[in-house]
Design a protein around this nucleic acid. Structure first.
Lengths: 163, 163
DNA sequence: GTTTTGTTGCAATATTGTTGCTGATGCTAT
DNA sequence: ATAGCATCAGCAACAATATTGCAACAAAAC
């Protein structure tokens, strides 16, 4: 067990509060508007946890802001990711996913159903990052993607194989 | 420079040939059909290199097989990935990308424009993979995603900032 | 309060991926 | 070679996801 207090679900209220404060601060620093919609989108994403898609956030947000439009949520998430309050997650699928964890952590990825779950391990933290300046990239952090097959996909294949 | 002979573009003919042979072998082993379309899709992807999207492969394939249908390409790529002849790449965007390299390598990812390029580094290979059996995953390999901002996105931000 | 300017909501549209079905074709056994 | 047959390709329609342009609105600064 590596993160007993956050078993891949959402974030508790205190943590959400401080993230919201961080957001408002960054927003001001950059001279951007801190709207109700953006705050609600952020909070919904934090409550959802677990790499939500834009549409999952939209659905969650509608409980509190019924009239919100889809492009608003899409733009808000993009905006939040720009600021680094959340980030885009790297995944093998074809639907954008956001990551509400901003600390160093890694992912277990199923290449069959595209689901992925968080994974933290001291041995994967503290990697020495090679110099990439020659390629023009300015790096902020890294993630290790442990790729394979999840349990339910393995069972599925086994069943089909035995048919 | 880490891979002078494959600067992120396609694969030479010899390498393509042996990948095709691998494909045909795996196909037979699994009792699946090795069709013209699938072979052409595989070869197009190998020539393209550089994590093509399904539509990029489609476009490339149409040069040789003008009548090919879009679902055919989509299904062929999925099929090739199932067999492990190519694989799905993890990326921050919303369009599926395939990776024609099957050896251990890593990615430099731009979180602004979602582009990513290959990166190999001995220091990132040979990581000790922690035990993940408790989570039900059976791992095949891993990738390190070095996340940041590419040169052109940095220049874009700088320009906008100075406006 | 007024102004300024960035943001929202809407509608339309684009892009990407999927499904069901029929006819075609690769593979195997003969 | 050929026949049989299961798999696959092509088609058309559809579904899901994301984006754009613009008028109306509202947050922040004065």
């Amino acid at each position: 067990m590596h993160q007993p207090d956050r078993p891949d679900g959402g974030m508790d209220e205190a943590a959400r509060g401080s993230r919201l404060e961080l957001y408002e601060r960054l927003c001001r620093e950059r001279g951007m508007r801190c709207t109700v919609q953006r705050r609600v989108v952020l909070e919904a994403a934090l409550i959802l946890g677990n790499h939500p898609t834009a549409d999952q956030v939209l659905e969650a947000v509608r409980d509190r802001l019924p009239g919100i439009a889809r492009p608003t949520v899409y733009r808000a998430l993009e905006h939040l990711a720009d600021l680094g309050v959340i980030s885009k997650a790297c995944h093998p699928g074809h639907v954008a996913r956001y990551d509400t964890r901003t600390d160093l952590h890694h992912h277990l990825v199923c290449l069959h159903c595209n689901q992925f779950v968080d994974f933290t391990s001291p041995s994967l933290d503290g990697l020495e990052i090679p110099d990439t300046s020659g390629l023009g990239f300015e790096l902020s952090d890294y993630r290790v993607q442990l790729r394979g097959t999840c349990r339910s996909c393995r069972e599925k294949v086994r069943k089909e194989g035995s048919t």
